[in-house]
Design a binder for these strands. Structure first.
Lengths: 317, 317
DNA sequence: TTGTAAGCGTTATCAG
DNA sequence: CTGATAACGCTTACAA
């Protein structure tokens, strides 16, 4: 494979001139440019991307850490990042983590090695303080997380859920529901989302949700079905189910239908197709937008926070 | 940021020795290794990944070209590639294309520039012959496609659908269905999948499918619902619907239910949760496995084909 | 076991 | 407008 020196030699010009031609710089006569381009074509030359990256100190790669790849939360954020990255001439590198902290630290290490210009944590196992600390050192590229980092000096793009959750619970309360089943992804202690949901519940109902009606580790559609099965088997009879995804709620509903039971009131999240089809209210967290914002922060020089307001979507009466 | 020379200087050893320590090579005294590692820690040194890539001529990056990111076909293949890549110490770079041939060629160009070690086309707009030609040149990394390339010298991992489709249509025929609605992603001319479905239909029924019952451009759940709506609005009354995805078929079913009409026989694809819940037969194309195989080919020196048998999944009677 | 020096292929600085 | 030459940071023959 020909390199820039071969082109210089064959064209009779210097490597600097060839480099200028490659990068469409000014200060090259049209004559010279034509000639050099001709030689590049003749020798079937293409510049080496890695050498450029080394020389410029940029890779144009953005790593996206993904605990898993099924939940719409992750796919939507990833899509948002990808769209913004594509538009800006950057690439997205997938970094599966399964919440394994050693793997996450491995990616931080790769960031320090300049394998990427930045890393976006869609979620994480390592403490936020650790991410903030490493970023502060500035020996590595930028780190962006997708949750509210509070006072930590850490870039973040995330949905502002609290007020929307309150709106949602007001909606539920107004309609007289009392026994609210809640389907959560992760435990209260581990998840900012779960915390936000439960805090909003407390603010609206002035009490804690009934522990027996709160299901955690509800991640996929089957879990949604199983949650309903659990309510039925244990005769818990929630009169309303607020789930962490439209499809999950839809599958819970299916369970009631399969048993010939009356379906409780329902509310989903994510604004998937099923909420529209079933005419149930939902919450759109605009994760796509979160992804776009996360990318902007990833390529920005400043540490900043970008909250994205989520939207409560009522049913058409 | 310290580099390998700084470490050499500070430790009193040469860069080659430092390099040996970094790469855990033999032929370094434990004493020396200890000392060098101490200095690396002291100076907070990490080797530069890009410099290594340039020196070794490998990036450990595998590009995956994705026309779009919603359909389970693409997400499953991508997941398969990602799992295999992770296990082998490679990274997956997302390359969105929207079937735009200029964008696809841009990625081929980046491959030639050695931005990736290989590129996997989950689907493509450019002719296969073009991919085969470029790969043959060997001036670039490997190219892998995810469909049967026939006689072309091109690496490929793909599902062997034909015999499974025949099994599926035999199943349908045996149960006496006559008016078969088919939901396809892309037109016959453009899609190997659509062709395989229709060929299998011909082989089993000894006639072409009724054109008015064949719907194309059915990609998402809403399209599934709309297809049923189309059948209803035009009074076409298929007695069976064979769709290109379980969820899509489930949404078609929902349309019939919403209209209070009797639901035709149903068969899905992809083996998603909905087929299990609705007790309808489906086909598992094992796209995850296709992704894994595609990765293996991407890092292999040889051009090879890896067909993956798809599976017809009957309902539990 | 350790060191020297030549790559790897660009970009960037500074003269001319 | 063009050209030397020094980075960029590491790997790897080849010597010693």
């Amino acid at each position: 494979m020909a390199n820039i020196h071969d082109i210089a030699k064959a064209s009779g010009y210097s490597v600097s001139t060839v480099s200028r031609v490659i990068n469409h710089r000014k200060y090259v006569t049209d004559q010279v440019r034509q000639r050099v381009e001709q030689v590049m074509r003749d020798l079937d030359y293409v510049p080496n991307a890695v050498a450029r990256d080394l020389s410029t100190g940029k890779t144009h790669n953005i790593g996206v850490v993904l605990p898993h790849s099924q939940h719409p939360y992750f796919t939507q954020i990833t899509n948002g990042v990808m769209e913004a990255a594509f538009a800006a001439g950057y690439r997205v590198v997938l970094l599966p983590s399964k919440y394994d902290e050693r793997v996450e630290r491995h990616y931080l290490e790769q960031l320090r090695q300049r394998a990427f210009d930045a890393v976006i944590f869609t979620s994480r196992g390592v403490p936020l303080s650790e991410l903030a600390r490493d970023d502060a050192h500035k020996k590595m590229g930028r780190i962006v997380c997708c949750e509210n980092p509070g006072d930590l000096p850490l870039s973040a793009a995330f949905t502002e859920r609290n007020s929307t959750y309150e709106t949602a619970f007001e909606w539920i309360k107004k309609r007289g529901y009392k026994r609210i089943g809640m389907l959560l992804s992760r435990e209260y202690a581990l998840s900012a989302t779960s915390q936000a949901m439960i805090e909003a519940y407390k603010d609206v109902f002035h009490e804690l949700p009934r522990p027996e009606l709160v299901r955690t580790s509800v991640v996929n559609n089957q879990d949604g079905y199983d949650s309903a099965q659990y309510y039925i088997d244990n005769d818990l009879q929630p009169d309303f189910i607020f789930g962490n995804g439209d499809d999950i709620v839809a599958n819970a509903r299916q369970c009631y239908l399969d048993h010939g039971l009356v379906v409780p009131g329902l509310m989903g999240q994510e604004h998937q197709l099923s909420s529209t089809l079933l005419h149930i209210p939902t919450i759109d967290h605009h994760f796509n937008e979160v992804g776009r914002r996360a990318f902007e922060l990833a390529v920005s020089d400043h540490v900043a926070q970008r909250p994205v307001a989520s939207t409560f979507i009522d049913v058409d009466e």
